[in-house]
Design a protein around this nucleic acid. Structure first.
Length: 418
RNA sequence: GUGAGUGUAGCCCAGCGGUCAAGGCGCCAGGCUGUGGCCCUGGAUAUCGAGGGUUCGAAUCCCUCCACUCACCCCA
């Protein structure tokens, strides 16, 4: 029947799903506003270099997941695979370093990654993200984490875990990585095949391998928090103090690392308790070196992002009640062609008055039109036939009580308003 | 990129070698010629994922491909 279907890993968001999306977007926007974030929309594609440079040449995202193409002018462009770099690019491009710091921006945007689709994972997904650029205060870390946490709270998601870690800065991280490599080199025999290659390629990733035996090795591995330089240690200590002040129930997870190269210092992730492969619904951290990497002055920053699809998944899983979207409450039915013109005029005037109206179409029987009104779930049906036309009136039927009465057209708005 | 499972109307699905591919939901219409929801009756909608093979005969068996789902990798 259908000649085409949505491309692999993409999906249509149908009206049944839209309730969740509107609910989430509205919560995101109002919460961001409470913390002083203003919305920014960046283009869906950017010069490829922006991402290879910021996300990191050796990350999976850059190596195998980007939608990169050449346009007719020969430029290499890439559909954005994450939201932070474009915001940083805009920060620099528009001289936002001249604004009061930190600059706070949020976005709701499509993200594209060429991956094998599965539950909670798509080739086009959507993120709500916040970025606070231009301040190194650990209080800003705490505020961002609080925003992320409150976001999920306000959505009604329970049973979440807030994981926190610090993976050091440019100074202390290399030293820690050396210690980590040494430790793993001496445990090489017990590691899974993937981990054996990670020891050289991406040692931090060793820590969150899902293999049982690797987890035992990871549990006993040297901890990044024990190898922080004094500045990083102090930052992390103060952050925890602020989080305690806020009453946020964080747990320090020594095995929490993040997949993008640009995260130093603070990293955090929020995970639902429910099982399933996609355990993370939101995460973030500091990216103090990114603005400089993109050609700006050294500028500390922190942000976080959440996947809307995964939030929807969890809202459904936890049966969180979602308020319904408003729909027209009036159906206008007509009997015969003569009444048709009046039905059209009446519908239009009700709408201009601010009321939603659905009109019966075609020359269908009154019975059929009422059936439709019923399945649409409207509160009232207005009926216009020849009798009403002559009298300058309509029949107003209350669909819930099945009571109906004849009212003059001029009185109809008042009747519906009650 | 790797592995497993599944593909029959808009949706849920029966049929697993032999009449027009069954049922439910939904849709349309009638019973009630100007009145919905319940009930009853009727109707429309399926190249049985695609291509090839085996067979007198394939939705059913075999092969290839595609898609979907789930998991790994990785990530939101």
């Amino acid at each position: 029947m259908a000649l085409y279907r949505a491309a692999r890993g993409t999906t249509d968001i149908l009206p049944e799903e839209q309730v969740y999306w509107r609910y989430i977007e509205q919560k995101a926007a109002s919460l961001a506003q409470l913390y002083g974030y203003e919305r920014i929309d960046t283009p869906v594609f950017e010069e490829t270099g922006l991402f290879t440079r910021s996300v990191g040449e050796n990350t999976d995202i850059v190596q195998k997941e980007m939608y990169t193409f050449e346009d007719r002018g020969g430029n290499s462009l890439t559909l954005r695979p994450e939201g932070t770099a474009p915001v940083c690019r805009a920060y620099l491009e528009h001289g936002m370093n001249n604004l009061p710091q930190p600059v706070k921006r949020y976005y709701l945007a499509s993200i594209f990654r060429y991956e094998r689709p599965q539950a909670g994972r798509y080739r086009q997904h959507h993120q709500f993200g916040c970025e606070a650029i231009g301040d190194a205060d650990p209080a800003l870390d705490a505020e961002v984490i609080d925003l992320a946490w409150q976001f999920f709270q306000s959505l009604g998601l329970q049973r979440l875990t807030l994981n926190l870690n610090s993976i050091g800065c440019k100074q202390c991280r290399p030293k820690y990585l050396a210690v980590l490599k040494d430790y793993y080199a001496s445990n090489l025999a017990t590691l899974c095949a993937d981990c054996k290659t990670r020891v050289e390629r991406n040692p931090l990733r060793l820590l969150d391998c899902k293999q049982a035996t690797c987890q035992q090795v990871a549990d006993a591995a040297p901890r990044s928090v024990d190898h922080l330089c004094p500045e990083c240690a102090e930052h992390f200590r103060r952050l925890q103090g602020y989080l305690n002040l806020l009453g946020l129930p964080f747990v320090i997870n020594h095995r929490l690392v993040r997949g993008l190269d640009y995260y130093p210092h603070t990293v955090f992730e929020i995970q639902p308790e429910a099982e399933g492969a996609q355990s993370t619904i939101g995460g973030g951290g500091r990216y103090d070196d990114l603005i400089e990497e993109l050609g700006g002055k050294p500028t500390p920053a922190i942000g976080f992002a959440t996947g809307i699809e995964r939030i929807v998944l969890n809202l459904k899983r936890e049966n969180v009640p979602i308020p319904p979207l408003p729909r027209p409450q009036v159906f206008v039915a007509h009997i015969g062609e003569a009444a048709r013109g009046e039905a059209i005029k009446l519908s239009a005037s009700l709408r201009r008055n601010g009321g939603g109206v659905i009109e019966g179409m075609g020359d269908r029987s009154l019975k059929a039109q009422l059936r439709q009104a019923n399945s649409l779930g409207v509160r009232y049906t207005v009926i216009i036939g020849e009798d009403e036309l002559k009298a300058g009136a309509v029949v107003l039927r209350d669909m819930t009580t099945a009571q109906q009465k004849t009212v003059p057209i001029s009185k109809l708005p008042a009747e519906l308003g009650s």
